[in-house]
C-alpha cells in the first residue's frame, strides 16, 4: 500500500461496499518555497493535523501557463528566492518523515524534460514523494513521463478536462496511477465566486473512476468548504483539491510576516469542515 492508497482506504472500502464514502479526502496544493523551503516541513505538519490527506507541492516554473495569477505569482517569487527543483526536492525530503500523508509533486514537463524524466523521477522517489502530477502532459505525450515515474515507484497523475471527450477521458484516466485529477472547470487555476457545476461533474467522475479503478480528485476553482462538500457529495468525487485559494492565504500571511504554517493550517481546517 502506498501512502496515496492509504489516504483513500476508507473511501475505497465504502465504494467496495456500494456506499458513498462518509468522508472524502482533502488535497491542498502549495508552492514549494513559499514562504521558504525551510518553512515547508512545519507547514506540512500543520496541514496534516488540520485535515489534509494528500498534499500537492508545486515545483516553481517560470512559465506556468495553466496557472492563474495567484499561483503563477507565488512561483515567480519562489524563483526569485532561488528555489530550484533540486532544492525543492531536498526540502520535501527533509519533511518526509514528519508526516504520514501522501505527498505528490506537480511539475511542468518543461522542467521534467530538461532534467531528464528518469533522473527527475528517481530524485522525486528518493525525496520520499509518492507521486508526480504532470499538468501539461496530454495523453499523446504522456508515456514519456508516466513510465519513468512508475519505474521509479511513483504514482503518475494526469489531468482530465471538462472538454475531454468521453473516450479520451477514459483513456487518460486509465493511464493514471494513484488517483485521477479531474478538472472541475475549464480554464485556469483560481478562485471563483460560484460553486462548480457539481451535478454536471458527477457523470464524468463516475466514468473516470470506472475507467481507471482509481479514486478521482477534483480541482480548479474550489475555494470554500461548501465547494469541497459539493465536489464530494454532489459530484461524488473522492478528493477535493484546493490550490489558489490556499496559496493566496499563504501569500497574504507572508505579507503579514507570518511563516505560512498558520495561514495554511487555519484554512485547511476551515475547508476540512466541508469533508463531513
Amino acid at each position: 500500500m502506498t501512502r496515496i492508497d492509504d489516504a483513500f482506504t476508507d473511501v475505497r472500502a465504502a465504494r467496495a461496499a456500494g456506499r458513498a464514502p462518509s468522508r472524502g479526502v482533502l488535497a491542498p496544493f502549495v508552492v514549494a518555497g513559499r514562504p521558504s523551503l525551510a518553512a515547508l516541513p512545519d507547514m506540512l505538519v500543520a496541514m496534516e493535523r488540520a485535515g489534509a490527506g494528500i498534499v500537492e507541492i508545486g515545483i516553481p516554473f517560470s512559465d506556468p501557463i495553466a496557472d492563474g495569477p495567484v499561483i503563477a505569482g507565488a512561483m515567480h517569487k519562489a524563483l526569485l528566492d532561488g528555489v530550484t527543483p533540486h532544492t525543492a526536492l531536498e526540502a520535501i525530503g527533509a519533511a518526509r518523515d514528519r508526516v504520514k500523508m501522501g505527498l505528490v509533486a506537480m511539475v511542468s514537463v518543461s522542467i521534467v524534460q530538461r532534467l531528464g524524466a528518469a533522473a527527475f523521477c528517481r530524485e522525486c522517489a528518493a525525496a520520499g514523494l509518492d507521486g508526480v502530477i504532470f499538468p501539461d502532459a496530454p495523453l499523446e505525450e504522456a508515456p514519456r513521463f508516466t513510465e519513468p515515474a512508475r519505474e521509479a515507484g511513483l504514482d503518475a497523475v494526469l489531468l482530465v478536462a471538462p472538454s475531454s471527450p468521453p473516450e479520451r477521458a477514459a483513456e487518460i484516466a486509465s493511464m493514471c496511477s494513484g488517483f485521477v485529477y479531474m478538472l472541475a472547470r475549464a480554464g485556469l487555476t483560481g478562485e471563483r465566486e460560484g460553486a462548480p457545476d457539481a451535478a454536471a461533474l458527477r457523470e464524468r467522475v463516475h466514468a473516470a473512476r470506472a475507467a481507471s479503478g482509481l479514486p478521482v480528485a477534483c480541482g480548479f476553482g474550489i475555494s470554500r468548504p461548501e465547494h469541497v462538500r459539493a465536489i464530494l457529495r454532489q459530484a461524488d468525487a473522492d478528493a477535493a483539491i484546493v490550490g489558489s485559494a490556499l496559496v493566496r492565504r499563504i501569500e497574504d500571511g507572508i505579507g503579514r510576516g507570518e511563516d505560512g504554517a498558520h495561514a495554511a493550517s487555519a484554512f485547511v481546517a476551515e475547508l476540512a469542515a466541508g469533508l463531513d
Binding site: I65, A66, V109, S110, P135, D136, A137, P138, L139, E140, E141, L158, L159, V160, A161, P162, S163, S164, P165, R168, I172, L183, A186, G187
Partner: peptide
C-alpha cells in the same frame, strides 16, 4: 513540435 499543453487546450 507536438503539443505539450494542459488537457484543457487539447480540444481547442
Amino acid at each position: 513540435g507536438g503539443a505539450f499543453v494542459p488537457e484543457t487546450l487539447v480540444g481547442a
